[in-house]
Nucleic acid binder design. Structure first.
Lengths: 214, 214
DNA sequence: AAAAATATGTCAATGAATTAGCAGAAAATG
DNA sequence: CATTTTCTGCTAATTCATTGACATATTTTT
């Protein structure tokens, strides 16, 4: 299983495959062909085969793919066979929502700390984790082998906090602040720009109204 | 300004242009060239010009682009010159977080209702909006000219709720549930699959570890 | 007011991603 | 156990997206 230069287009589709395969597995489905999966997921069968072949091919001619095996393999590719400890910076509603997701835990993402600069939130508990003041963040990262920091703070401050995170050994940032973070080579950033997403929706509403005549 | 068959790749970049132009405007910058903008945003100048030209061209040779004008025009393309009323289905932390974002209001997205099936949450207020029971959803949509429904409920139930929304005249769904919604032609769906995003991050962490030798 | 510099819009070239097609391996059938 | 069917892995073709190059319009400089 060699992985070199897999495009982000492919990576971006893997979680969706993983989700569908997990559901099939739970339904007791043992095997599936690219054809069947393509109908279910509404993508071409060719794309499915091509995507999987990036990682060496998990199927067998005349049989198809074994659901359980394929599920496991994609999980491995996505790194879900390891555990990743994460902390949340910003204990507002969004931070609390993400801290509360039990599904993340199931995939090996362990919620281990939460920080906020607002004294009113410090001390509050989210799923057994006590919100700590921002001053304690650096030490906590160094002492607790934290991989991922989730940034759920307003954009003012996000750049500065990101820098502090990186300086203390964070490998990855899941960024919900509405700014682009510039981090050194080797630090992974995945941004979720909610307002961008909403604007895309807005565009498509408008487009449809225009195309179908006001 | 003719728009036909603009690719989603282009649309996906518009909100980011809009964000940068808004910041430049606030800083008092009057004009900018594709070259300068490309350095700021870390994309090629050619792509910027190509993207804008999909909509007819907003610049002038020898001058560049007027920041204020370009900002306005992209806003119009994204439909931000109109107002859209939205409701939130699911008054958990995520729903509350989205209801609380003042920035959406600034862009013309008006938070007008919130619903939850949990009686413990009904009656609670989020930014002046009272959480109503699910049973009142249909009538509210019909009587209040609601464009967008934000789905912040668990995946069980999301498909059924989506159907109810569509049957009562919703045009667009901003979907945070971890399922793919199948809606009729003409209904817009924009999904934010948070766990997919986290898995991509996980993949990239792993990849880097492997490439740089364990 | 002429010359030099700037910077767009557009076309062409390249590169990336998706889809189509098919040889051949395995499974199912009779 | 031979024949037919199924279905992958792979290569080739096609489509889509990005980048490069340049003619030309506008601005700035001298």
């Amino acid at each position: 299983m060699e992985e070199k230069g897999i495009s982000q287009a492919v990576i971006g589709r893997l979680p969706r495959y993983f989700r569908y395969l997990g559901e099939l597995k739970d339904e007791g489905v043992e095997r599936i062909s690219s054809q069947e999966l393509s109908e279910l997921m509404k993508v071409t069968a060719s794309q499915i085969r091509q995507d999987f072949n990036n990682f060496g091919g998990f199927g067998q001619q005349g049989y198809g793919y074994n659901v359980e095996y394929l599920y496991q393999e994609i999980g491995k590719i996505l790194g879900l066979d390891r555990t990743h400890r994460f902390i949340i910076i910003g204990a507002g509603n969004l931070g609390q929502a993400l801290g509360g997701y039990l599904n993340f835990e199931r995939r090996g993402f362990i919620f281990s700390g939460m920080f906020d600069k607002n004294p009113a939130l410090v001390g509050k508990e989210v799923r057994g984790i006590r919100v700590q003041p921002m001053e304690e963040m650096e030490q906590f990262i160094r002492e607790n082998d934290v991989d991922i920091a989730v940034l759920t703070i307003p954009k003012t401050g996000a750049v500065e906090v990101a820098e502090r995170l990186v300086n203390n050994g964070i490998r990855a940032i899941w960024n919900f602040a509405h700014v682009d973070l510039n981090v050194p080579e080797g630090i992974q950033v995945e941004s979720v720009h909610l307002s961008d997403s909403l604007m895309k929706l807005s565009y498509n509403i408008n487009r449809y109204l225009q195309e179908s005549g006001q």
